[in-house]
Amino acid sequence: MPTKHLLKIEDLHHSFGEDEVLKGISLALNKGETKVIVGPSGTGKSTILNNIIRLVPPVSGKIYLEDVEITSTKKINQIRQQIGFVFQDFGLFNHLTAKGNVMIGLTKVKKMDKKEAEKIAMEELERVGIGGFADSYPSQLSGGQKQRVGIARALAMKPKLILFDEPTSSLDPELTGEVLTVMRNLAQEGMTMLIVTHEMGFARTVADELIFMEGGHIIEQGPPEKLFKNPEHKRTREFLFKLTDLYGEGEE
């Protein structure tokens, strides 16, 4: 069924063996929107992202990128070119420099000319503030710098949206800040983003919509202020309040 949403997920189910981790997830993303998925660990948040580009093929349900049904397409590689993915553990290619990491998708997948790819790679590295590290290898970069290379690599492909899978969970608070700043700028520039994170301050200030998940279900979704101040479900309140107690109200 075609849809006017940029990304649409309908009744997504997923299991690892006997363990059903997603029990019917439906959500949609319009162009330019930033949605943030939060919830306790092990509730299938990352699985949704992996299901979307079929790094882990979903068990059942339908996912659309505009008019194309991702879940049944034979051209999954073309879909993956249009959806950026940022990994928790960065996923940088260890044998390539920062610039090489950003270029490889352009030269090998998009068959772009090397000069042109290099130009784009430099632009994207500048955009995330690490143009000066273009010739460094991953092992020579800090975690925050690595993740920014990961974001630049996704951006260089000119994706329609970017999925972030706990992009700051491997970083200390200082490095987390520099990555979140980059993501905040992207949101302001109108990039469409679906983000799984535990950074409540970020979720609260940047998300157009907050999605609270638990036990394989979406418990509640809506504007972040509503969920934080006036949630409809007891569980949402408990989870978000616990975090607010622990970390305060976040930024600003």
Binding site: Q78, F85, F93
Partner: peptide
């Protein structure tokens, strides 16, 4: 395995990922 996964996420086929990402590291 994350290396191959990252290659796939860029739209590479499995064999492209093996040739451009896994083998250059394995051969070293």
């Amino acid at each position: 395995s994350g290396q191959l996964k990252a290659a796939l996420s860029l739209g590479m086929t499995k064999w492209m990922g093996i040739i451009h990402v896994v083998l250059p590291q394995a051969l070293r």
